[in-house]
């Protein structure tokens, strides 16, 4: 079973939910993948011991000018404008390239080979019983989906994988949430929380992924998030009231379940509720 934790708005508590859920389940062979590769932070709470590190790159074109006839086919098939063919020159803008390989495939002269452009680092480790993986995107890099997909290769059929997604609704989030059985949407009862919950809930609906909502700092703000969930038929899975002590644990990098045994039950119950909804579609 693959379970994503996402949010439209940043800073609502995705990592808090993902980490504490993973710890609360106390299961063997559970995997937690931090797919927020631009700013991974789950490791700060789980403190895994890493045993594997790999550089991840994407294939970008290299032109063999002895063969190139400047026909312009590569530029024509590139969906991302990464190639410009100018009379007797071909310019490759590597930072625009998504690594799809179309240019090399369609080149009639076989004048294009591919080489790897590094985009980040993949790390795998163990945190007690929990198998852990995350990616670290290189600073300034915009192309995160290939790294996210590489991190997700740790998903194993039949076992529980919790995926901590990046915030927002753009390509990296779609990469993190795709192929998941369920998506927990973490939000807060504010105007921004509601606005971005609407965006992300429409995103998961379009992707055909079931979703439920966790409302963090639930006693602040107003009722519009709950009204929204009722209107849209989104189950509210959990409400976490604002509590200064919780913020203090977080600031020290300590998971909340360590200090609040009741959280084990809250999260376990939430998990079984989700598992019931996923029955029959579980991989």
């Amino acid at each position: 079973m693959r379970l994503a934790v996402a949010s439209g708005k940043g800073g609502t508590g995705k990592t808090t939910v993902a980490v504490n859920l993973a710890l609360a389940l106390r299961q063997k062979n559970l995997t937690l993948l931090d797919c927020d590769v631009e700013e991974p932070n789950a490791h700060l709470f789980l403190k895994p011991v890493f045993y594997f590190t790999k550089e991840v790159g994407i294939p970008v074109p290299r032109i063999d000018f002895a063969r190139c006839t400047f026909c312009g086919r590569c530029s024509e098939v590139c969906a991302f404008n990464a190639l410009a063919v100018l009379k007797d020159q071909v310019l490759v803008f590597e930072e625009l390239c998504h690594g799809c390989g179309s240019c090399a495939y369609f080149c009639p002269e076989r004048a294009i080979s591919e080489h790897e452009r590094p985009i980040g680092i993949l790390e795998r480790g163990n945190a007690g019983n929990i198998k852990f993986g995350h990616g670290r995107l290189n600073p300034g890099e915009a192309m995160s989906p290939p790294l996210i997909n590489e991190v997700k290769k740790m998903c194993r059929p039949g076992l529980i994988t919790i995926i901590d997604a990046p915030p927002g609704t753009s390509c990296p989030v779609v990469s993190a949430v795709s192929d998941c059985d369920y998506c927990i949407l973490v939000t807060e009862p504010t105007s921004f929380g509601l606005h971005d919950l609407d965006l992300v809930s429409r995103m998961v609906k379009k992707m055909g992924v079931q979703a439920g909502v966790v409302i963090n700092r639930s006693d602040l703000g107003d009722d519009r998030v709950e009204d929204y969930c009722r209107d849209k038929g989104l189950p509210v899975l959990q409400k976490i009231p604002f509590d200064r002590e919780l913020a203090e644990y977080q600031a020290r990098g300590e998971p909340i379940v360590k200090h609040r045994p009741s959280w084990h039950d809250y999260f376990e119950k939430m998990f079984y509720r989700i598992a019931e909804k996923c029955e029959g579609v579980s991989r």
């Binding site: 312009g72 530029s75 991302f80 404008n81 410009a84 100018l86 625009l96």
Partner: peptide, 19 residues
């Protein structure tokens, strides 16, 4: 045609002028 491209509008426009 490149005016609304998601990215790389500049180099593609240069290619257009070159053509």
């Amino acid at each position: 045609e490149n005016a609304d491209a998601p990215g790389g509008a500049g180099p593609q426009s240069a290619q257009l002028l070159s053509e």
